[in-house]
Amino acid sequence: MTCAAAAVIVSRLADPAAHAQVPAAAVDLGPGQSQAALMREQPVPDAAPTPAWEEERGVEAYFRNWFRRVALAQSEQPGWVAALVAPPPFLVEQMRYDQYIEHLGNDASVQNFGVNKGLQLIPDTTEEIDINIPPYQQRQNKNPATGFGDWQFALFKQRLLSAGPNDGNYVLSGWITATAPIGASKFTNHVFFVNPNIGGGKGFGDFDIQATFGPSIPTSQSHLYGTSLVSNLVFQYRFEKVIWPEVEFNWTDWLNGTQHGGSNQVLMTVGAVLGKFTIHDRFGVALGVGYQFPLTPAFRTEPALLPVYQRNWIVSLRTPF
């Protein structure tokens, strides 16, 4: 990338309001809105005749029309908010910071700062790319330790099917993540993991159901860690437009491996997300809080600790844009 192109990128992201040129009708993405046709009909607001904004080419045009493209992508899918734990099957553009306060069955407690969240972007009308920061963890009470955990450095999502709130209110997507073993010795698995996933959801008025499923596959030492199947089921409701109470079931089934092979774990998460509260134009803030606890199995320490914790307090701060 040339210095000129880099300067264009920085200027667009630093001052999006000055370059986005998004009509007021296209940036209000409240639940229930569907304006895909309107977005496609909007010409670029220049004095001279120009092609439709979707047909423009070049780096500068790409970033000038960034928020138009995001608005179009979001108008063609449900207007839900991302759940507290389960990955969203729809496209999301926001900054996200999560924190877990975990209490383990062996009397240790772990604080997880970041939880592999970060910048979530919609570079195209059917795609999402996440740029995450590695989590920082602090263990207390038993075997104290601090340091970074393994880093989920890559996420690419492709939306396959979708319809806006007034056109069917459903979504189906596939995505893949990769996790690198960069963590401190007390927090790393020492191997890379690859996680292909598929997820979808259907809305019924203010109520929606979301589900995701995918394997977690180690690239080496599979005899130790094994392959696990990770599933999530979310029941979510919208109350007074900005209150989203939810119940989640987070299930992991280890198919093999000496640590957990043949075991399964089911966690239940209850909580709510408040927002989005608009700050300026497209920019807003949302806050989620939740409590997670195991339903099964019974506590054990050998051959490895299971369930992974006895209770977990969750805080999630998002800044959608």
Rank of each mutant, 00 (worst) to 15 (best):
V234T: 03
P31Q: 08
S75A: 01
G262H: 00
N250F: 01
D98S: 13
A145R: 07
H223I: 13
E76V: 08
E41D: 12
G164T: 03
H223S: 13
S216W: 00
Q210C: 06
N166F: 13
N116P: 12
E56N: 14
E60R: 12
Q111S: 11
S173Q: 02
R12C: 11
G262Y: 00
T2H: 07
V10P: 15
G271S: 03
W313A: 10
Q35R: 05
A48F: 12
L295P: 01
F148Y: 02
A14S: 07
Y136T: 08
V70W: 04
M268A: 04
W313D: 15
G30K: 15
E302R: 14
G284S: 08
Y170T: 11
L13A: 14
W151A: 05
T50R: 14
A286F: 07
A5R: 15
T301F: 13
P45Q: 03
Q138F: 04
T296S: 05
S173L: 03
H103P: 12
N264P: 03
G275T: 04
T188R: 10
I122F: 06
T177V: 09
L274W: 02
Y62A: 00
R159T: 12
Q33G: 05
Q158A: 10
T296N: 03
A5M: 12
P165E: 11
L13G: 12
A37H: 05
R96E: 08
F204S: 00
P123D: 04
W313L: 08
P49N: 11
T212Q: 06
W80K: 04
L72F: 15
H19C: 10
P218G: 05
L233W: 03
K117Y: 11
P181G: 09
V315I: 12
L305Q: 04
P181K: 09
A180H: 08
M268C: 05
Q99G: 15
G105D: 05
G79Y: 06
G168L: 06
V70D: 10
F299D: 00
A71F: 15
A36P: 09
N143E: 14
A108E: 06
N132C: 10
G271Q: 01
E41K: 08
P31H: 08
P78C: 09
A184P: 15
A286D: 03
P23S: 04
G288F: 00
A14I: 08
T301W: 12
A18F: 12
S228T: 08
L233H: 04
K276T: 06
F193K: 02
G201F: 05
L224T: 10
A178D: 07
E41Y: 11
L229H: 07
P16M: 05
D167S: 13
Y136D: 05
A108W: 01
P49K: 11
Y237N: 03
G275P: 02
K202A: 11
F192M: 13
A6H: 14
Y225P: 07
A82I: 11
S263R: 03
D167P: 13
G275H: 03
K202C: 06
F277V: 14
E93W: 09
N189C: 15
P144D: 01
G271R: 05
P89H: 04
F153E: 04
T126F: 10
A17T: 14
L13Q: 11
L29N: 02
Y100W: 15
N197V: 09
V27M: 14
F213Y: 10
P16G: 10
N112Y: 05
P303Y: 01
A5L: 14
A25P: 09
P123I: 01
R238L: 13
I122S: 12
D130P: 12
V191T: 14
G147P: 03
D208W: 07
V115Q: 07
